[in-house]
Simulated assay, not measured.
Amino acid sequence: MGHGKEVKTRPDPKVEIQEKGEIFFFYRPKVDKEEAHGPDDVQRMYIVLRPEHSADRAVEEKQAPDSGKEGRKHHHQGGAGDGGSGGGASKEEGHQGGHGKEEVNIEEQPLLRLVVMGKKSLPDPAKHSRPYWGYVELVTTKLQDIKDALKEEKYSTATRGQRRRPAARALGEGVYRILRHEPGGRGRRPHTHLVYKLELPTRGAREPQEAMNVEPEASFLVQVKNPDAPSGGAGRGGGDGSFRGLQSKRRAAFPAHLQGAFGSRRFAPADPPDLLNYEGCELLLIAASDDVEEELGLELEAEVGEGSQGEEQQRAAECSDLVKMFGEVADVKPLLSGGWD
């Protein structure tokens, strides 16, 4: 549906748009479950970010194509269990983080990031809760890689025999911005926001969305973990203490000019957003607001036209990029109906 547009509603709101694009939300039911009927049935929550070119940002820097899960997958030429599943089977836990660099003209080819949220939800944007930990699982220019990561997978284990990892379910589709905010005031440093506005579901029931805190619009502060810093306290960012960060070999290995953004700090703003283009990039999402306009003086405008709820839903489904790109591998019922499976 495109990346929409933004309107500044206050003079000089001190925000600078660094990246714009489309955002997609997915969840995966637990292993061997046919359906999910509530958050307890959810195994993982995913965010897919697809940056789009703008007048001043047509080229992004990403990890080298032979690194991370992207490189492992292509080395195995798409074979079974080659790392494209994204499901976390034990033999895939050892892949290296992204490293090296290449430039991608996002006007000519897609750039896609698959982010895993550790707590299987977003932080509640209306509450100042503890930061939620996540990490970049996959960065690729090939749509099929993301489709492979979301599709159903069957695999064998030594103790439980054949297991089935269900296909992901589509949870939301919208537009996003990554922006630098300079709040002003003594001692207040510039920081990075991820803001989004949903296009689907449009209106009506939103049971899975509400259960996983995917609000119609929201703003989060984004901080990236220094991969050279020790991981002892990373669990505090997970929201429940169960996440201690990725193993060192799975962390991103940023080029010197990006690693330099951290200095001696454990965390730094996602500035530039190229930091998110490396598999193994660990990040924190911190609830900021569920009213982007009030907080930042910026209003995101989606591309779903006015009409009755049924008309909106049908029109949106017909032009939905999520449905077009992932509908053959991810169940879109929760996206279109606002209900569980």
Rank of each mutant, 00 (worst) to 15 (best):
A234F: 10
L198M: 11
V195D: 05
D228L: 10
F220D: 04
P208W: 00
I178F: 13
R236P: 02
M212Y: 02
G239P: 01
E207V: 01
G185T: 04
E182K: 15
V224K: 08
G232C: 07
R177K: 14
L179Q: 14
G237K: 05
K197I: 03
G238L: 07
Q209Y: 02
K197V: 07
A234H: 15
G238V: 00
G172P: 03
H193N: 07
N226F: 07
E182Y: 08
L200W: 03
S219W: 02
R180Y: 06
Y176H: 10
R186I: 12
L200V: 04
V222P: 07
K197D: 02
A170L: 14
L221K: 12
A205K: 15
E215I: 02
R189M: 11
N213K: 06
P183L: 13
A170P: 06
A170E: 07
K225V: 15
P227G: 08
N226K: 04
G187L: 11
E199K: 06
L171Y: 00
R203T: 11
T192C: 13
E210V: 03
R188P: 04
S219Q: 06
D228E: 08
G239E: 03
E215A: 15
R203I: 06
R177V: 04
F220K: 11
R203W: 14
R177L: 12
N226M: 11
E215W: 10
V175N: 02
P216N: 08
S219T: 12
R188S: 13
P201A: 04
G174S: 09
R169E: 03
V195Y: 12
G204W: 00
G233T: 14
P216A: 12
E210P: 01
G185M: 08
R189W: 08
Q223F: 10
G232H: 07
V195T: 11
T192H: 08
V214E: 01
T202S: 13
G185Y: 12
H191N: 08
H191L: 11
P227S: 10
N226E: 10
G233S: 12
M212I: 00
S231L: 07
R169I: 01
P216E: 03
L200A: 10
L198D: 04
N213S: 08
L198N: 03
V175S: 06
A229Q: 10
P216H: 08
S219Y: 01
K197F: 05
L179C: 12
A170N: 04
L194P: 02
R169D: 02
H181C: 13
L171V: 00
E217I: 09
G232Q: 05
G239L: 05
R236C: 09
K197Q: 09
I178L: 14
G187C: 04
R177S: 08
R186W: 09
Y176S: 02
R236Q: 11
A229L: 05
L171C: 01
D228F: 06
E173C: 06
E215Y: 15
S231E: 10
R189Q: 14
P183Y: 08
N226G: 14
V224E: 08
R203E: 15
F220R: 05
